[in-house]
Design a protein around this nucleic acid. Structure first.
Lengths: 329, 329
DNA sequence: TTGAAAGCGGTACCAA
DNA sequence: TTGGTACCGCTTTCAA
């Protein structure tokens, strides 16, 4: 390569990296040689000295099934990809569900294959984020971690506030036997939404009744299952706050199969404002979280960590959620 | 690291790579030092000399929207992940839709960030696979490429045969005005399924009528749109061969909205045997392609290319499809 | 069984 | 503006 252009390796390196201290003639010669050879710098060699790989990982701690089944992930990935697209980084997606070999994943992430890590859909107390932080690997979590940690940077939607909005909306509409189909309780988002529901009921002076709280997970089938239990235990329920649009869709199906009219007999709210919200009948009143904005913040914070030489202070960001009113409530 | 264990770098390397020519005592000392330091080898340095990264890329040439919206991809990714899980390779997923910067993608793939590339959902004449082959980068395509190429290795389902099966099933059931909602015609799978449909009609001595062929794409909304057109042009249609389960679901919706009974008035077949097939009413008669098997073959062929020192001959594999009979036809 | 040394392919400093 | 050179951290002969 250097030989073909008749210059030194140093000069090739300068041209490739767009250094200004290269004469036009030399640059042209090198460019010609590059084109002729289809030369591409060896990223391993480059990484070895620069300590940069030019790529960042998006790690989703979830099974393929859920990643592909739930519109939330599509939105999140879209938001993140969009933000990454305006940088010169390559985004690589790693799916590492519960059955994934943690060793392999950590080897990949700790080994420096990527410049930073975006982490999504944490369950329980996952040691991964803390391990990453301890090793000084730039990391941003999507969603608040299970246990507060001063070193962790994360971006989260205001799930408590969102669930509260939905519940208050039902309260104001005169509903009094308001149940909830919760998300998975090993996830902070699931618990937060439950908290928001309870907060709203308490503030409204309505009794809290754990019998009205059924764990449904974020899935459609989980919603169906939970709705069946609810109808069984409380046939007089007049509203259901579901923790996701998908579970709300399941709830809707079961209610309709049981002959309930929505929203007349039972009002239903979802969460996410995903494509599901508008594809079901009646369309879902739901809580919107701006995934594009969350993604953009995550990428921005990650880049700040990557680009800063000193240790960056941890940042914790909670973005507002809003109520989207449609026909279901 | 080497210092702590009191040995040379060479010895550390031998221990890390499990070389048999290390004494037990030394190995123990090195292992202890590794554990104490949380040492992980620098993959860039290692890659520089071994020319191996330990990871392979799954490149999906599709937008996030479709990747996440269509169950086909979930199945494909599941099949591939499953096969990769039994190796010590890390799978990284790159989504590179039409708007993606081809330069960035090629830089990543050609640069040697990964040991090999699995390519999914090719549209039109994508130069990427040939470029990869020319650079000697191990590559396996999921799906036959648009233009035959002797150097390309691929695994495909027998889409022609599958569509033929579905169509023949309708013919045997006595249907005579059989329409099709095709997939995207810039994709080989889309065209192949159309071919199978035509072949079956021709063999049955039924007239081919391009008026009965409407492009729908693989999406639900595409299916809806196409079904509307069909009902408009041919209210007497008595069967529809859809190119995917998702578009079949859309077709079903429109037919039912128009008051048609399925399958009595109009029989409908899907393609993929995805979760969609069983979640709609009536459940879809559809064509099954074994994505787990396709994924396994893709990974196997890729590993063979990666592990072989000499140039591997290109392999082209067409896997059988089968008809799954349910209620819709 | 172990260590010394060369080299993988770049970058970056220093000198010219 | 350019080239020489050291070095990034590992693997891999080769010799001891």
């Amino acid at each position: 390569m250097a030989a073909l252009a008749g210059v030194s390796r140093s000069t090739v390196s300068r041209v490739v990296n767009g250094s200004p201290k290269v004469s036009e003639a030399t640059r042209a010669a090198v460019d010609a040689a590059i084109a002729q050879l289809g030369y591409l710098p060896n990223p391993a060699a480059r990484t070895l000295v620069t300590r940069r790989t030019g790529s960042i990982a998006l790690v989703v701690r979830e099974t393929e099934e859920r990643v592909f089944g739930e519109p939330f992930f599509a939105g999140m990935v879209r938001g993140i990809s969009g933000a990454v697209a305006s940088t010169d980084l390559q985004l690589v997606l790693l799916m590492a569900g519960p059955t994934a070999d943690p060793g392999r994943l950590e080897r990949y992430l700790f080994g420096g294959h990527t410049d930073g890590v975006l982490l999504l859909s944490l369950h329980g107390v996952d040691p991964l984020p803390v391990h990453l932080a301890e090793r000084g690997i730039p990391t941003v979590l999507g969603g608040r971690p299970h246990e507060p940690h001063p070193q962790l940077t994360w971006v989260d939607a205001d799930n408590v506030g969102g669930a509260r909005l939905a519940t208050e909306h039902l309260v104001h509409a005169g509903r009094r036997r308001i149940a909830t189909v919760t998300g998975p309780l090993d996830m902070v988002a699931g618990r937060d939404r439950l908290t928001g529901y309870r907060d709203a009921l308490r503030d409204a002076g309505l009794p809290l009744n754990t019998d009205l709280e059924v764990v449904g997970g974020f899935t459609r089938e989980g919603g169906r299952e939970a709705a069946r239990q609810l109808l069984d235990r409380h046939p007089d329920v007049d509203a259901i706050v579901a923790a996701s649009d998908l579970s709300a869709a399941g709830v809707l199906e079961v209610l309709q199969e049981a002959g309930r009219r929505i929203p007349d007999d039972v009002a239903v709210t979802g969460f996410d404002d995903s494509t599901t919200a508008t594809s079901v009948r009646p369309a879902l009143t739901t809580v919107r979280q701006d995934l594009t904005e969350i993604g953009a913040h995550m990428v921005r914070l990650l880049l700040e960590q990557i680009e800063s030489t000193a240790a960056t202070p941890a940042v914790q960001l909670v973005l507002p959620t809003t109520l989207v009113r449609r026909a279901s409530a």
